[in-house]
Design a protein around this nucleic acid. Structure first.
Lengths: 203, 203, 203, 203
DNA sequence: TATTAAACGAGACGGTACGTCCGGTCTTAAT
DNA sequence: ATTAAGACCGGACGTACCGTCTCGTTTAATA
């Protein structure tokens, strides 16, 4: 018969030419999977390559470092779960929803928590990774929250004397702090407490 | 005749050579030195051993992991520089001094910043290291700040409605956040901003 | 239609890079060189690896033990210097030449003596190494000498009542004995004496 | 007062505790036991020390090297089993008995075979050990056999044209050869074959 | 009898080599 | 041209053993 129809999914053919989208996805999926299921020290390039049934070459061709791979896996993920609340809702609800969604997107079985922790760890030993993480992820999230808090100031719910950058540092700092040290649970009750204290300002 | 002769085999208090204090110090000093002068990925056990002129065996005998070694180097350091302000000073000054000293102890040429970053990274790939770091360092620092903030509440400078744990998370979270991501400088101006916002509560 | 697509996983002839012949040779050369120039206790895998400018991995991938490496270096060597006498010469000359060549191949600046001693030593602490040495080297040499002595019996120069295996044991045993214990020199005079006594039998 | 009473250090006959005979015996027994029951690579000083319930110090104080320890264990053993036949028996029986006893003392559950192999191996990497082994053991055995063979020559049972040193090399060489390479059994049948061939001379 | 110094068990020390693992590069054959 | 497979060099890992060095105790000759 036609020899064209060989699309056995268990046997991913490599096409030559063009980047193989299937391989790309397999690598990212394997990375995410490993980061979620194994201690981070076991998430080696070799393990990823083996899990994705892909050559090392392919990984190194498209990602310069493990950090870049993790970052890619993260943003791929994050693109899906854009946590935005109804813009017509009153501010307190919108802030509450933002924090709730943010934390929900981190914890939980499919949350980005393990990837974030791995990235943060990786960033400590690699200045380039740190810069990429900061510019490719951290700053975007900061800008979004800052914008939201500015609306809170406009609405008079947040003290006009507050420095928004410091409030953003308080918020994300507290969340990261609990994620990284596990000194206390990172849960919705914490989201409510953060929101309350942000708005406590000048009450 | 002598009825003394205690031959209880379980009573053996010690036999053999004692731990060499000089070696212990050399290892910790080498660790601190390397963490300050080299990128963290070069702070290997082998490099520490070579710098301290010590056998690998000695390191592995007394510290179960690189994280434990880093933690030990940190607390040894921290024991020296106990940053405490004059307890008779009024609260705002004391809070300010606390934050100023804390940040000064992190940044700067002899600051603990590099060790802290290395420890935090290590803690992400090793649950035991995470627990040890949390219980051996994080919690102590939290307790100290919490105590100080409680005095601020008593003095009426911090809102009685504030949850102290959340304020501690804000404070240390923000500091860690800047240390780890470097999205903005971790300096004395930031210490002032944090202090101002903590006391802004309920004003 | 001949695109029958043999996807039999067992049929995979080869994938990936082939073994690097240059590395193989470098390792064997370094081994021989070290065995000749340093005391045997300094002939470590690490020294070989360093001298051959090769990764440890490469050595362990192709040779299961130091003994296997030594044996390989030996047979590689021996393949080059095949010491065979003129088959048309009369028997006494041929036996004399065999022993002379054998001993000359052992002693001397490029002789296999150091490798043989190292192998014999290694074989005492490792039964597998002993078996490999016996089957891969000892037996071949025994067979060659036995064949030669059989011709001596046919020619009536060696007693027909002699057991050839015992004579082979006498010959190689005496040579090894002098090589290993150094109680007396292993030289050409000894070769002559051995030949004389072998042929003395039943005279 | 009297300047006489100053102790010439060379005059000091003895002070302090004497050598502990029990420890000495325990070390030698542990060495023999380990050599017989474990592969030689596991016969480490640490294992001996642990088995003998003795301090490392004690071993290194009395034996300069593992080879010296093995040699001591061997001669201690050999002193017990002196293989000497009735001097009034006719020569062939006496030679046969010598070889039979020699081989019996090597093989068998309590034989010195394992110790001999370990010593020979050790001697290959240590010239001093080689010399000690040669002078402290090999030469004595050679002298004994040579004396016996000389009597054989006197009795006319061994060819007067034979060089006794070569015959000794044949005999001990063959035995060592089988012991070390295990290419054929080292048994009483081999003892008989050796004796027969030694006496075959000039028949 | 009291002193004193050697020898003891225990075991920590600085080192060195081990054999394994991973990172990142390079080669090969296949598509 | 790009892939999957996999061999390559380099180097850190954590373990084992070496031979040396304290420790505090035991033992016996001496004073």
């Amino acid at each position: 018969m036609s020899s064209i129809s060989r699309r056995d999914p268990s046997h991913r053919p490599h096409t030559g030419r063009r980047r193989n989208e299937e391989s790309r996805r397999a690598v990212l999926a394997a990375t995410r999977d490993l980061v979620h299921t194994r201690p981070y020290r076991e998430v080696t390039i070799e393990a990823i390559v083996a899990a994705a049934r892909v050559g090392k070459r392919t990984v190194y061709q498209w990602w310069p470092s493990r950090a870049a791979l993790l970052l890619d896996a993260l943003v791929e993920d994050a693109r899906v779960r854009v946590p935005l609340a109804d813009p017509r809702a009153p501010f307190p609800e919108r802030l509450q929803a933002f924090l709730t969604n943010t934390i929900a997107g981190i914890v939980g079985p499919e949350g980005s928590g393990p990837v974030l922790r791995a990235l943060l760890a990786e960033a400590q030993s690699d200045p380039e990774a740190r810069a990429a993480f900061r510019d490719g992820f951290i700053q975007h999230r900061r800008a979004a929250l800052r914008q939201l808090l500015a609306e809170g100031q406009d609405a008079g719910v947040i003290s006009a004397r507050s420095d928004l950058d410091t409030l953003v540092d308080f918020t994300y700092g507290a969340i990261w702090y609990r994620l990284l040290t596990e000194h206390a649970p990172l849960d919705q009750s914490f989201a409510r407490s953060i929101a309350a204290h942000l708005m406590l300002q000048g009450s």
